[in-house]
């Protein structure tokens, strides 16, 4: 019974409430780190780890944190986890850490994490908060991967660093530059909205 509820919550965070395509949160890392699938997955997983951990801790402390300074308190909690992740990545994934650069420390001010802390973890108990953090993180990772697949194939002719088309293919450099990020993001959001509308229409007709 309970597990079914958590499952539904998990899926809704990935599809109906996708942080990137539906809530439009965390646009800066989305545009900056979706230049290649490798970067996107690395960024997504790092953010997922921080999200799940900080949601749990904030949920545990939600009755002790005073209302007036709650944002500062959240940032302190998030920042400690980001520091842990940042140092772990520097130690074990130095290449990825270098190519993501500043965007890993910037997870501290990632608005997905702050938004979930404020909107969910501060009002719910530990287990739902953990599921929420995990599902938002996976939704973010999948969204980043979707954007980066389009951008890496068109802009570099590769996928996860593997060349796809041989030397005859001339990649469109604009797709891995900032304008390509905006274009891809906009088109995918439009597509997701269209699919959601269609699904909603079907549900309405059913009921």
């Amino acid at each position: 019974m309970a597990s079914k509820k958590y499952m539904r919550q998990f899926v809704s965070g990935i599809i109906d409430n996708n942080p990137t395509f539906v809530q439009l949160l965390g646009m800066c890392p989305t545009l900056a780190t979706s230049t290649s699938l490798e970067n996107a997955v690395g960024m997504g997983l790092a953010a997922t780890a921080v999200l799940a951990a900080s949601n749990v801790v904030i949920s545990l402390l939600r009755k002790f944190i005073p209302q007036k300074i709650r944002i500062a308190a959240y940032v302190v909690i998030i920042a400690s986890f980001v520091t842990v992740i940042d140092l772990l990545m520097q130690a074990y994934l130095p290449e990825l850490s270098k190519s993501l650069g500043l965007y890993i420390p910037l997870i501290v001010v990632n608005c997905i994490i702050l938004a979930r802390a404020e909107a969910f973890a501060s009002k719910n108990s530990v287990l739902p908060s953990f599921v929420d953090g995990l599902s938002m993180g996976v939704g973010f990772t999948l969204a980043l991967s979707a954007i980066s697949i389009v951008r890496e194939i068109l802009g570099n002719g590769t996928l996860y660093g593997i060349s796809l088309f041989g030397s005859g293919f001339q990649p469109a450099a604009i797709m891995i530059m900032a304008p390509g990020g905006f274009l891809t993001l906009g088109l995918i959001i439009a597509l997701v909205q269209k699919l959601r509308q269609r699904a909603e229409g079907k549900e309405r007709r059913k009921s």
Binding site: Q170, A172, A173, I174, M175, M177, P179
Partner: peptide
Amino acid sequence: VFLFLAWSSA
């Protein structure tokens, strides 16, 4: 401009 930024050498 799109083509120029995408394939600037051509």
